[in-house]
Simulated assay, not measured.
Amino acid sequence: MQKLTNKEEEIMKILWRLKKAFVKEIMSEIEGEKPHYNTLSTIVRNLEDKNYVAHEAFGKTHRYYPIISKESYRKKFVNASIVDYFDNSYKNLVSFFAKEEKISVEELQEIIDLIEKRK
């Protein structure tokens, strides 16, 4: 599974949310500055080449749908990030967010409760 560019990830998030969409429907979901239609179409075809999406043909028009789940993608690349940036340590990951004040004591307690329930 190849890592996606930021723009490809943005398009995949839209497709995961919509389940199936034509390029014009994807375009309408993009927030902020919208790419040219042909540019977006090329990005979606690149996602198909990378085996992230497939399509159904309706004449000359294609409706695209994800063939890689959001969960599969998240698992692969979150794990890679933990290896690359946190020395393969979830403790280092959680510590990072605690130091950056991105996680509250209550959220940490919820995580502890989840771990204890699994024992």
Score class of each variant (00 low, 15 high):
Trp16Leu: 03
Ser81Pro: 12
Ser104Asp: 05
Val44Glu: 01
Ile82Asp: 11
Glu100Thr: 03
Lys119Asn: 14
Lys70Thr: 08
Ser69Val: 01
Thr5Glu: 07
Glu8His: 15
Val83Pro: 03
Tyr85Ile: 08
Lys24Asn: 14
Tyr85Thr: 06
Met27Ala: 10
Ala21Lys: 07
Glu116Arg: 13
Asn88Ser: 11
Phe86Thr: 03
Ser69Cys: 03
Glu71Lys: 10
Ile43Met: 12
Gln2Cys: 14
Glu107His: 08
Ser89Ile: 01
Leu93Val: 14
Ser104Tyr: 01
Val44Gln: 05
Phe97Glu: 05
Glu116Phe: 15
Phe22Arg: 08
Lys34Gln: 10
Glu106Asp: 01
Glu29Ser: 09
Glu9Met: 15
Ile112Asn: 07
Phe58Pro: 03
Val23Leu: 08
Leu93Gly: 12
Lys99Thr: 02
Phe97Gln: 06
Pro35Phe: 01
Asp113Ile: 01
Tyr90Thr: 03
Ala80Pro: 07
Asp113Asn: 08
Glu31Tyr: 15
Lys24Gln: 13
His62Pro: 02
Arg63Lys: 12
Glu110Trp: 10
Glu48Phe: 00
Glu106Lys: 03
Glu48Leu: 05
Ile68Leu: 06
Asn88Leu: 07
Glu48Gly: 01
Arg45Ile: 09
Lys20Ser: 09
Met1Val: 10
Ile112Arg: 06
Lys119Thr: 13
Asp84Glu: 14
Arg45Asn: 09
Ile68Trp: 01
Glu116His: 15
Gly32Cys: 03
Ser89Phe: 02
Val94Thr: 06
Ser95Ala: 08
Val23Lys: 03
Asp84Asn: 11
Lys99Arg: 12
Lys117Pro: 06
Phe97Tyr: 09
Ile115Ala: 07
Phe58Gln: 02
His55Ile: 02
